[in-house]
Structures are given as structure tokens and as C-alpha cells.
């Protein structure tokens, strides 16, 4: 092949972001079509609630297939700045958000902010535990002062 993609092994080509992304889009598109075809479709003249989503699911599946094939065939220009996944940051940040969502209705604003900050701060790998706790206290106090006192949002500092 003239574009030089023939050199890459099949396994490496299958791991290209375009191939993975296209395959995912195809899968999601098909799922949307299946789900939406459970709603009344109606006619082109008087469309039911299912018509438009089915159309979108189909479009998504076609586009996903096209992207996967184009990428597999080496039709996509490479980009040097592809980043590596950072599982530590991913887990820390998402766990921090989960802590906030769980603590806010049960324990109040201050514990929720503290939980979010202490957990999410682990994502950088550059924070000592004491530093994280100090940051948590400062941010919790700030959040309370700005949002509860300043803007009067219905966010009690503590709940029992």
C-alpha cells in the first residue's frame, strides 16, 4: 500500500483510536436503534417519538463503521501528541466525585467537599496526606463562605 500502513501488524492497527472509537460508535448506534424501535415510530408525515432516534442510531452506526474502516486502512493521519491513559488520576477524580455525591445529602457540604478534595488530591501523586487535609479544610471553609453565606444556596454545612 502506498500510504505505508501495510507495515503495521493487524493487532496494532486494531488498537488504533479510530478503530476502537468507530467500533464503539457502531455498537452504540445499533443499541440506540434497538432501544428506540421500541417507541412508536409513526410515519414520515407524522413522526412518532421513535422515528428520529432510530434515524440517529442508524447514522451513528454508519459513521462508526466508516471511521473504523478508514482508520484500519491507514486513511487517518497520525497525531504525535496522543496521550497515555493515567489510571491513577482517573480513579482518584471519579472516586472523589462519587464521595461528594454520596456525602452531600447525608453529611452536608463540609464533609462532602472534604471527601472530594482528600480523595481527588491523590490523583496527582504529589500530595502528602497532611497537605491534602489542609487543602480540604481550606476549600470546605471557602465553599461554605461563598456558596452558603454569600450566595445563600440551600446547602447546610453539616447534616446529622
Amino acid at each position: 500500500m502506498s500510504d505505508g500502513s501495510g507495515g503495521a501488524s493487524l493487532a496494532r492497527r486494531l488498537a488504533r483510536p479510530g478503530v476502537i472509537g468507530g467500533a464503539l460508535a457502531l455498537a452504540i448506534g445499533l443499541w440506540v436503534m434497538t432501544e428506540a424501535s421500541g417507541y412508536p415510530l409513526g410515519t414520515a408525515r407524522r413522526m412518532g417519538p421513535g422515528y428520529f432516534p432510530v434515524l440517529l442510531g442508524g447514522l451513528m452506526a454508519v459513521l462508526g463503521t466508516a471511521l473504523a474502516l478508514a482508520s484500519l486502512g491507514g486513511r487517518e493521519a497520525p497525531r504525535g501528541d496522543d496521550e497515555r491513559a493515567d489510571p491513577r488520576a482517573l480513579v482518584a477524580v471519579l472516586a472523589g466525585l462519587a464521595a461528594f455525591a454520596l456525602l452531600l445529602p447525608r453529611a452536608g457540604l463540609v464533609p462532602a467537599v472534604a471527601g472530594l478534595v482528600v480523595i481527588a488530591a491523590q490523583g496527582s501523586g504529589q500530595m502528602r496526606p497532611l497537605g491534602a487535609v489542609v487543602l480540604a479544610v481550606v476549600l470546605a471553609a471557602l465553599a461554605w463562605a461563598i456558596f452558603r453565606m454569600g450566595l445563600g444556596l440551600p446547602l447546610p454545612a453539616f447534616r446529622l
Partner: peptide
């Protein structure tokens, strides 16, 4: 803090 608690 106590006032905030009462309000809820």
C-alpha cells in the same frame, strides 16, 4: 454551624 443545622 449550629444555626446551619437548625435551618435544615
Amino acid at each position: 454551624a449550629a444555626a446551619a443545622l437548625l435551618a435544615t
